[in-house]
Design a protein around this nucleic acid. Structure first.
Lengths: 311, 311
DNA sequence: TCTCAAGTTCCAATATATGGAACTGTGTTT
DNA sequence: AAACACAGTTCCATATATTGGAACTTGAGA
């Protein structure tokens, strides 16, 4: 089992030249700076990867195994029973059984009357707090709202987590609320607007790690299918400051997106304006691109301002 | 450390007399029957308690300790740093530090640039799946919608989990969507409508366990303040089939609620219609009580129908 | 009734988590 | 500026929790 491959990557505080003492002037192109001055003498291995950004599902001891089981249940098309889980797990029956028992006891899993396992309510409880208590989200939210008001279309906020983007917030029209659909959902980074925007700020090594660990799946005709293509697209995104998603993940849906990130890259996220192709033209999206980018900058500034005050 | 106090309570399949072979006739007062016939030879200790319904936070080995840490972070008023967590935890520095590292590696916690810990995005990811994949919720949802259409007020679905009720779903007016506020939120059972409805179906021992482990806190003037009061209220609820919440948790808000549960009590939930006192009178709530109860029965029937077909 | 598969329990062996103490870096005081 | 105090991090012998094979139930089907 491959574990302990690395340490923190995000912590390799790498100042981007010009640092801030000027309070809040809008300087596009500059992310919010790290809260601490110099980088710690991190004696991380040269290889790195994994920790929050990019990486596989290397198990961290007992906890990691429990998470593996949770993942099996989460990814099942319907609530799996003991043996179904056993087949996907590489653990002996006795062990797996105890793990399941523990997970159920903690409320992370539910065992239904028919013995099938489903994700437990404790997860909902935690997620509600994770969401409500998330400072980044609450700082960004008003900006998302104003972006929605300007465009009239759905606005998303998503963060990069390993190889996926996880949707953190969403502001949409008064149209029938499709529940809180998106929030918490995860999508592959390479085929979504927010994903490409997020990937565009990775440093070379991180991108390398990402590309090594990702596997491309063609969701639609225009889905990016290989590393070379992805690289060149990301170069463009890096240049422009925004990314498009031309129905690369879902047919009939496209969007513009810009990255939101901290200087030390401990937080990499993105915002987007999304619309259906039948109503929103590509050129309309292009019109919004600058606004999206500007909004992203504003969020970064606000985050920076919010970080300081914390004693 | 007190662990392994018990086994499953919910599994003590306790048929309520008359059992089902008749398919789907509406027989109010009868919950959906357990999917399995007899009760297993559960040699559970006489004491019992804990497992999903009612109980304390007894740690289940390593996983339990990790959950304890998660809980500390979740309950903090703002993202705690290492020592703040250390003070609430009863573990030595070295141990706690490694646990935190593991939790961060798994994405269950985030360590921000200022070193403070917050709940991680993985929790959101899991919760989204827990919610979307929850069969009970999806079965109940259309009923909630029709209940909303009949009353015009906000409708909730909540499940009993340990001493709390966790909100699973919500249907409300087109009024500005206060995000998906409630969902995933947890409230004490004794002072909410859904909570009292849920508690009313507990058997004697379970109620005993609940009362032993709960601590009453006066949220408003009318909050139930002691066990005796709670018992007599629950007796009334049991009789009537629905419960009221007269501003017992939040001033200005009241509701009617009815329990939804499986015969083996492995699932205990409740639905409610909630409204602000300035617009909804008590007698209006009483008018809805019967409808709420009927809707609850219909959900139970639907659940029963949905349980069978599963091979 | 018998048989087979699914699910559950048990316990010695061993890998894993523990926790005290030493270490590093950061910010504060004299 | 040096000394101090404090938060955070690492290390390693030890204790303990997890492991996993095998035996044991239970339930469904022939």
């Amino acid at each position: 089992m491959s574990s302990d491959l690395s340490l923190e990557i995000g912590k390799t505080a790498q100042h981007n030249g010009l640092n801030s003492t000027d309070s809040g002037a809008s300087v596009p192109g500059r992310p919010l700076s790290a809260v601490e001055g110099g980088g710690k003498k991190s004696h991380a291995t040269e290889h790195s990867s994994r920790s929050g950004l990019v990486g596989e599902s290397a198990s961290t001891g007992t906890l990691g195994k429990a998470m593996d089981v949770l993942n099996i249940v989460a990814n099942a098309s319907r609530p799996p029973r003991f043996t179904e889980i056993l087949q996907q797990s590489d653990q002996p029956r006795g062990t797996l059984h105890r793990q399941l028992t523990n997970l159920v006891a903690e409320g992370l899993l539910n065992q239904r009357a028919d013995q099938a396992y489903e994700l437990g309510y404790t997860l909902l409880r935690f997620a509600a707090r994770a969401w409500a208590g998330n400072e980044f989200r609450s700082v960004a939210h008003p900006h998302l709202k104003s972006l929605h008001e300007m465009t009239g279309e759905t606005v998303h906020l998503a963060v990069l987590r390993q190889n996926e983007v996880v949707y953190l917030d969403k502001v949409e029209g008064t149209q029938s609320v499709r529940m809180h659909s998106q929030i918490g959902n995860a999508s592959p980074a390479y085929c979504t607007g927010v994903g490409k925007a997020a990937l565009s700020v990775l440093n070379e090594r991180q991108l390398e790690d990402y590309i090594r660990s990702v596997s491309f799946h063609r969701y639609t005709e225009s889905t990016i299918a290989d590393a070379a293509d992805l690289r060149s697209r990301l170069a463009q995104v890096r240049e422009a400051g925004f990314a498009f998603d031309d129905e690369e993940h879902e047919t009939g849906i496209h969007c513009v997106s810009s990255p939101v990130y901290s200087a030390d890259l401990s937080l990499i996220a993105a915002i987007s304006v999304t619309g259906p192709v039948y109503r929103i033209t590509r050129s309309q999206l292009e019109t919004w691109a600058e606004t999206v980018r500007t909004t992203a900058y504003q969020i970064m500034e606000d985050m920076q301002a919010r970080l300081g005050p914390r004693a």
